[in-house]
Amino acid sequence: MSTNPGQEAVLAQQEHAAHDEHAAHEDAGISQFFFGRVPEGVHGGLKQYSLLAIFLGIITLVEFLIIVPEGLQGSGVVIAPLVILSVIKFFCVVAFFMHLKFENPLLWQIFVAGLVLGLIVALSLVLLFGVFRPTPRAFSEPRIEPFEHHVEDAHAVIERPLPDELPPPANPADLAPAAPAGGAAAGASPGQTLFVGTAACASCHTIQGVAQGVLGPPLDGIASVAGNRISGYSAEEYIRESILEPDAYTAGSADGLSQDYQEGLMSATMAGIVLSDEDVEALVEFLLQLR
């Protein structure tokens, strides 16, 4: 194997460093350590490293302070400063704690190659799956998989015996802001939005033009019949109880419906859904309009 001049220089430098290591160690001043050119094999001491640790600690504190104002939390303007600060931290650790600044340049190349490859992988994934969302072209429509089997799967899940321990319900405070995401038509009442959205009523109940569920009784005209279901209950009281205590009364063929419905199904499927008092009132108000 031939020896190239670059390698020779590196070797000579290494030997030089090995001889002078202790002297250089003592001599590397702070400014030389951080900013100057120092021979290979030179390292820092307590003074240099504690300065760097304090610097990194301050950066961490600044990063935290940036996101303390509530207006800035999660906003786009903080992204650039936070990324810049963490890149500074990242390369300070690599250069000084991992002493890559004082090493053979080949190690930089190896590490940066891995780092760049990693960044390319990350960027490609984000672009492929997070940013570019092509719309299928017309010719592919007949081939788009029908989703009937999803319906079957969903029924299988609903009919499955319940696990002993149900997952804790989601925080009700979060459900409210998510409600507009329910896909309700523009101008829909809050109750209707809940009905098709987070309250998930639409999964099982039918209302013409709103929902097509089949597992529970249809709710068209519920406001007209609700008052006759249980003696002594007004329509409003009956609807409210049916939401809050679904098992109290299960409507069926005795009420003039086309079939009997499974008892206990609604309380089981609603177990993971938390509705606030306002949500319940909005639903009652919406259902009372269905005459």
Binding site: F111, A113, G114, L115, L117, G118, L119, V121, A122, L125
Partner: peptide, 11 residues
């Protein structure tokens, strides 16, 4: 190894 671990955590 550390270079390759960048790819791992990058993913």
């Amino acid at each position: 190894f550390l270079g390759s671990d960048c790819l791992f955590f990058g993913s």
